[in-house]
Nucleic acid binder design. Structure first.
Length: 110
DNA sequence: GGTATGACATATA
DNA sequence: TTATATGCCATAC
């Protein structure tokens, strides 16, 4: 289903599975959706996810735990506030204990 | 249909 | 270790 949106839909599906208070990386998502080399596409998909409020893009950060995409949110620190609202500590636009908060989504089995 | 861009990642210097 | 360069793949123009 949703064979049209294939890529975006897959990204959304994974991001939507991110538990509250957890974060993940673009690379992890890319790998799970079957496009490990398309980590950039994940971020690109997130850009389009703005029309979909069911996708917690604020829980997705780059591999260093940096809120690379906070700049794309409405506010300047909206992303950070959202994460902090979930119990995640943000310092200098970076996720503290990122490694511990990092959550790897299960592989998409169709 | 080719070029340019991108919320990343990995490799090399 | 930090900085620079390249790859990768899908979207937009």
């Amino acid at each position: 289903m949703a064979d049209k949106d294939n890529f975006f839909e897959r990204v959304y599906a994974v991001v939507r599975q991110i538990p509250e208070g957890r974060v993940t990386t673009y690379g992890a998502i890319a790998k799970v959706i079957g496009a490990a080399k398309s980590a950039r596409m994940v971020g690109y998909a997130m850009n389009a996810s703005h029309f979909d409020d069911t996708v917690p893009a604020h829980r997705v950060v780059n591999r260093v735990g940096l809120l690379s995409g906070k700049h794309h949110f409405d506010g300047t620190n909206l992303m950070q506030q959202l994460l902090e609202s979930e119990g995640i500590v943000i310092k200098d636009n970076k996720v503290q204990d990122f490694q511990e908060l990092l959550w790897i989504p299960p592989v998409c089995v169709e």
